[in-house]
Amino acid sequence: MSEIRIASRYAKSLLDLTVEKNTLEATKNDIDLFLKVCEENRDFVLLLKNPIVQSGKKSAIIKSIFEGKVSDLTLAFFAIIARKGREAFLPEIAGSFIAQYNEFKGIIKAEVTTTFSLTPELKKEVEKVVKEISGKNVDLTEIVDKDIIGGFIIKVGDRQIDDTVSSKLNVLRREMTQNQYIKQI
């Protein structure tokens, strides 16, 4: 079975269970913590994916790291995944859970890139525009990139709005390199 299908099925099971138990927000926070640990500690992810280390040992390590920091339900879920020998897929399962959580809550991820940090008023305005475009609540990520010279880039799903000075200069450069003039004799 493919990695995506495995992650999706386990994430869906966890989402359904947490909705049923009314612990969705707590579990989402737990999964955010797990993803943060995975992001900050490459060795942890490599351990999870290592086929030489036994599942029981991985389960004990996961328990020692997250016990007292996540809910009992999340810890039990991690234990079940390890017992099934699927602990290598935990980062993908967590990512799939967040995607399904966002879909369930009607949240869309958006990314805005500018040359400066957005003020709270400007950030609210961008969120408002994205909400009008998508019809969903917005989880906005802000990126500062001095290379775009000026303007902004907004990415929402697979759509991108590029209104930067550097992109306009590139268009102008392409137009100038095409010789559209005919020499008159």
Rank of each mutant, 00 (worst) to 15 (best):
V112L: 13
E132I: 06
E103S: 14
D163E: 15
N179R: 06
N50R: 05
V126C: 06
I154N: 07
S59M: 05
T119Q: 12
F97Y: 08
V53Y: 01
K123M: 10
I133Y: 09
K21T: 07
K105L: 06
G106T: 09
L169R: 12
V144F: 04
I52P: 00
F44K: 03
Q180K: 13
V37I: 14
T177F: 10
L15A: 04
T114L: 14
D139Q: 13
V19K: 15
I182Q: 06
S167Y: 15
S134I: 02
G151E: 08
K128Y: 05
I80D: 03
G56D: 02
L46T: 07
T119N: 10
Q180S: 07
V165A: 10
K58F: 02
D32F: 08
I80P: 04
T27G: 02
G106W: 06
P91I: 09
S71Y: 03
L172D: 14
E121L: 10
G95R: 13
V37Y: 11
V53D: 00
T74G: 01
N179H: 06
S166Y: 11
I149W: 11
F34T: 03
S59Y: 00
I93H: 02
T119H: 06
I98F: 02
L122G: 04
A76W: 06
L47P: 00
A7H: 02
L122Q: 15
A110G: 12
T119I: 12
E132Y: 05
V171C: 05
K183I: 14
V126I: 15
K57R: 15
N50C: 07
F44G: 03
P51C: 04
F34I: 15
S64P: 03
K69R: 15
N170Q: 13
N170C: 06
A7W: 01
K57I: 12
A82Q: 01
Y10E: 00
K136M: 11
L33A: 10
T23N: 14
I62G: 01
L90N: 02
V112A: 07
I153K: 13
T141K: 15
I148A: 11
K84T: 01
K123E: 15
E40L: 13
K69F: 02
L169Q: 12
I153N: 10
K109P: 00
C38E: 04
K123V: 01
Q184W: 05
K63T: 12
K183F: 13
V165W: 15
V130M: 09
E25Q: 10
F152G: 06
K124F: 07
I153Y: 11
E39V: 11
T113N: 08
K128M: 10
T27K: 03
F66A: 02
F89N: 14
E87Y: 00
K57W: 03
K124V: 09
V138M: 10
N102I: 06
D145G: 11
E132R: 05
G106N: 09
K123C: 13
V171A: 15
K105W: 04
A88Y: 00
R174D: 15
L15Y: 00
F116V: 15
K109A: 10
I143C: 04
M176W: 10
I98A: 08
A11K: 02
N179D: 05
K21Q: 14
A94P: 00
K57Y: 08
I31R: 05
K12A: 12
K69Q: 10
